[in-house]
Design a binder for these strands. Sequence first.
DNA 1: AAGAGCGTTCTGCCTTCATT
DNA 2: AATGAAGGCAGAACGCTCTT
Length: 410
Amino acid sequence: MGSGIRWFQTELEKPDSIPTSTNHSNSKSIQQGNQRSSSSSTGCSKLGSATLVAVIPKYGSKPSSSREVRRCSSPGRAHEKTETSSPTRRSIGSKDYVNKGEEIFYEIIRQRRLSDDAIKNTIKGLGRTWRDLRLIQDPESEIVKYVTHLQQNGSTSNNIVESVAALALLFKVSGFKEVPTQGKELYQIMKKHRAAIKKVQKEESINSLDNLLKVLENQAKKIDDLAENASMGCIIVSIMIFSVLRLAEVMRASVEQAENGSWMINTSTQKGEDGGVIVHFRKSRHIYTSPVFWLSTWINKCRCRLIQNNLWYLTKTNKPATVNQGSKAVHEIMKLANIDISYTVTSIRSSSITKQIAIGATKQQVNRFTRHKKGPATMARFYDKNTNDELKERLATFKRRSLANKKVNS
DNA sequence: AAGAGCGTTCTGCCTTCATT
DNA sequence: AATGAAGGCAGAACGCTCTT
């Protein structure tokens, strides 16, 4: 939100003073209604989250840094603060409840844990009274004016997109039924900013998978001398390559032995609503890269790893490894494979999928393997790192043949 | 080691467009 | 008109870096 609107979390009261009057069904409907109003304020705007104070600097103020912008932008963790504060329920005189709209305005913002003072400051920041907000005929124009102002001040696209989302939210809680961000004029203005913050899809060659497999083989040869961390790194890498599970999913997995010395890994996906995933690893011709080999070795060294939630038990700490430790162990293996430090653990998933496509897996096969809901779109945008070089080469070949034919004809 | 903050990844929902 | 594929947007989980 940057200079547009900054949401601060303020602990005003102790958790035990949370009023019990909150209407849950109402809260839910309001939250859903506003679900799409702001991407950055998601976590903060959740009903029941920490106190929010919206500060809207007047036109002419300088945009803040992106770090400031994102201070409250991790919805996955926003709930952790949920119970730490409560709304300031200072009574408002009945004269303020002039009509239903005003009543709803205050009620909604209270549900969002904004104090009454915060509401007044917010509206003052816009240079209006709160009743004026309802009197604005064309919220879209107001937002367009503000965006123009931000553009002239050299605000970043991130900043502008977030500011617009926040203003839309403000208008919405002011009683406007429609979110003004869908207007044609604003849509056109915002198009370039939205495009600017999207991930760039580029052709990028990833050849790391074969290197990783080689490292696994080399490490397997000296498995008895391998440190616990290195072992863990190898197993995670192997599992990721052959199951394309994400790191977090691997780290919360449990295993059990199945027939013929195979292993079943059982985990849950928390992205989307897929729920549980069970992947069955069977013995492979390529012994040393196979998860079966690595899991067998790992479990045989300490049978307690078969216990639920104990797969990544480390003897040196006497407790299961954290996701962070898992990430570091994988990076060690990636380093051995000469993979640039800038690549994330997820790039292993990327490499695996890229190779599947490169070796001619069908769309259905890849979708089933990766468990993607929107397979082709997700694949093209995030995972398929094939460079299209082969296609380009074949196109060029076709051209040369045409020229050759022409020569023959002439 | 734990937690905060922020960029990345990926999904659900909705809309649009093409095909039957 | 019905159906399905694909694209866009917003929300949310994930992964990494940095700080304490």
